[in-house]
């Protein structure tokens, strides 16, 4: 930890630059999301509200889960879908740690959906960032629970017949203290939501709508990374006070981003301390 390195970029101090180049495809949104998150983390660290030696990244399996390889914090790369229970264990064993879970939509809301549900219900003191790319990208683009209707994937070659899961609505319906959505086209919101979430207690959830031109974009006719980013940008609508009912991701009507839930319910640690 915290070994003096030659700084080329202001965020280099948070990265294991010997691990670079990363595995993400050209045009992937995860790098944007990670950089924005690190800026939010950096603000908290510079304020003295967060100790980088008390920060733990826990990830599961998938493209987004590779984040734990590249950040120079304590990190764990766990099983597919099981990052949240692992992180819960970390937090309960040492409540002074700030535990951040990063994962994809397949990891967090698909195979790990049950853990998401119960961590939110408990208001577990975790910050979960779900980077949504609408497919299982690492295995080559299979149908994910967030894949929009009628979209082609490698397991639905004539279009997806299954309605997608709205994860914002799911988590908001539970006991989470913070539920927000940003997009890789609005990295300043990823940064400010991360910053805000890291100043709160309880279960904090941030969905980052991302671009995956390589395995998702090609199915919706947007293989060019710039085109995909621009098309997403056109559809992203920021609202200062969005309501959960407008959180459905709809490529035609737009994708509403913003802070859906901000509340101060007693967190899990508060509750167990009270006995």
């Amino acid at each position: 930890m915290a070994v003096a390195k030659k700084v080329i970029h202001p965020l280099d101090k948070y990265l294991r630059s010997d691990r670079l180049p990363h595995i993400w495809c050209p045009g992937c949104g995860i790098g944007i999301a990670l950089a924005a998150m690190l800026r939010g983390i950096d603000r908290r660290i510079r304020e003295g509200k967060l100790d980088r030696n008390k920060l733990v990244f826990v990830t599961g399996i998938g493209c987004s889960a590779r984040v734990s390889f590249y950040v120079d914090f304590d990190s764990a790369h766990t099983l597919h879908g099981r990052a949240i229970p692992f992180a819960t264990g970390v937090k309960l064993a040492n409540p002074s740690l700030e535990v951040i879970v990063v994962g994809g939509d397949g990891d967090i809301a698909g195979i790990g959906g049950n853990h998401l549900l119960h961590a939110a219900r408990r208001n577990m003191d975790l910050f979960v960032v779900m980077i949504t790319n609408f497919v299982y990208a690492m295995t080559g683009g299979q149908l994910a629970p967030t894949t929009p209707l009628r979209v082609y994937t490698t397991t639905t070659p004539y279009g997806n017949p299954e309605p997608p899961l709205n994860v914002i609505k799911l988590v908001a319906s539970l006991n989470a203290n913070y539920v927000a959505r940003a997009s890789v086209t609005t990295p300043h919101y990823i940064e400010s939501f991360t910053y805000k979430a890291l100043g709160m207690k309880g279960f904090r959830f941030l969905e980052v709508v991302s671009t995956c031109p390589e395995v998702y974009g090609r199915h919706i006719g947007l293989r060019n990374p710039v085109a995909m980013l621009e098309e997403l940008k056109k559809r992203v609508i920021y609202k200062a006070h969005p309501v959960v009912d407008e959180s459905d991701i709809d490529w035609d009507k737009g994708i509403v981003i913003g802070e859906y839930v901000v509340r101060n319910n007693p967190s899990y640690l508060d509750l167990i301390k009270r006995g």
Partner: peptide
């Protein structure tokens, strides 16, 4: 089935047969 490397192609190929 659920995707996992290196099995995935079996199910991908098969889902093509289903869709066709």
């Amino acid at each position: 089935a659920y995707p996992i490397t290196p099995q995935t192609i079996i199910v991908e190929k098969f889902s093509e047969f289903v869709a066709n």
